[in-house]
Computed example of a mutant assay.
Amino acid sequence: MSPTDASAHAVSTPMTGVGTGICSDTSEDGVARGVGRVTDSEDTLDLRLPQELLALLDARGADAGRGGERRAQECRGDGTVLPASRTSTGNDLLDGVGGWGPIPTPAGVFQLVPVRVERDLPLVCRWMNDPAVTEFWELAGPQNVTAAHLRSQLSGDGRSVPCLGVLEGTPMSYWEIYRADLDPLAHHYPIRPHDTGIHLLIGAVTNRGRGLGSTLLRAVADLVLDQRAACTRIVAEPDLRNISSVTAFLRAGFRFSAEVDLPAKRAALVIRDRSLRDLL
Rank of each mutant, 00 (worst) to 15 (best):
F110Q: 01
P114E: 07
L121I: 04
L121F: 05
L121Q: 07
P122E: 03
P122D: 04
V124Y: 04
W127K: 03
M128R: 06
N129E: 05
V133C: 09
L139I: 05
N144I: 03
T146Y: 03
A147G: 10
H149K: 10
L150E: 08
L150P: 02
L154R: 14
S155D: 15
G158Q: 13
G158I: 13
C163Q: 12
L164S: 05
L164Q: 09
G165C: 06
E168Q: 13
E168W: 00
P171K: 02
P171Q: 03
S173W: 01
W175I: 03
W175S: 04
I177W: 05
Y178A: 08
Y178G: 07
R179T: 11
D181H: 06
D183R: 03
D183F: 06
P184C: 00
P184Y: 05
L185P: 02
L185V: 12
H187P: 00
H188C: 06
Y189L: 11
H194C: 13
D195L: 11
G197I: 03
G197W: 05
G197Q: 09
L201P: 04
A204H: 07
A204D: 14
N207A: 14
G211D: 08
L217W: 00
R218C: 04
R218I: 00
A221E: 07
D222M: 06
L223F: 01
D226K: 12
D226T: 12
Q227C: 13
Q227M: 13
R228V: 14
A230W: 12
C231M: 03
R233F: 00
A236T: 14
E237G: 01
D239W: 02
D239F: 01
D239I: 09
L240W: 01
R241M: 08
